[in-house]
């Protein structure tokens, strides 16, 4: 139960932050990516603002355990593989095309109108298909 309360608080803060930061406004995200047009630096402020408390949180994990118990996540192997690069390129292309990424896609559902629902359904379909895409990819070109 405690775990769910914290999950709700974390999700609520995330949703509130995505909302007030303007990051569910697709023109602001595309404006950040549009270095040859009317460039909008807002996203850098959002990223900077978010990284600050998160960096403190990572420092606080040292020598401690999560409040609800268990262990903190260990850092993944520092491996820069094909999946990381190719996946990020595909993600970036979709992000630029619609100006939406997974967090804002959920945060904007109540006020963005039907296009956000279309995007969400397509995103869920993509996430559902991703394990198959990945295994096809591994068959065609073994990762390393």
């Amino acid at each position: 139960m405690q775990r769910l309360v914290f999950a709700f608080i974390a999700g609520g803060l995330f949703g509130a932050g995505l909302f007030v930061s303007g990051m569910t406004d697709t023109t602001k995200v595309q404006g950040w990516l549009d270095v040859f047009g009317n460039w909008d630096p807002t996203l850098a402020f959002v990223m900077g603002g978010a990284i600050l408390p998160m960096a403190i949180a990572w420092m606080l994990t040292k020598g401690r355990r999560p409040i609800v118990g268990g262990e903190f996540p260990t850092p993944p192997e520092p491996k820069i593989g094909r999946n990381l690069v190719l996946g990020s390129v595909l993600f970036g292309a979709g992000w630029g095309l619609a100006g939406l990424c997974p967090g804002p896609a959920v945060a904007s559902l109540s006020y963005g109108g039907w296009p956000h629902w279309v995007f969400l359904v397509a995103m869920l379909a993509g996430m559902w298909a991703a394990p198959m895409v990945r295994s096809q990819l591994d068959k065609a070109v073994p990762a390393e």
């Binding site: 999950a7 974390a10 932050g17 603002g49 978010a50 949180a57």
Partner: peptide
């Protein structure tokens, strides 16, 4: 908004 997002991430990490 960024500070709120990061605080959410901090709660999810430190609590859960």
């Amino acid at each position: 908004g960024g500070l709120l997002i990061g605080t959410g991430g901090a709660v999810f990490l430190l609590a859960n």
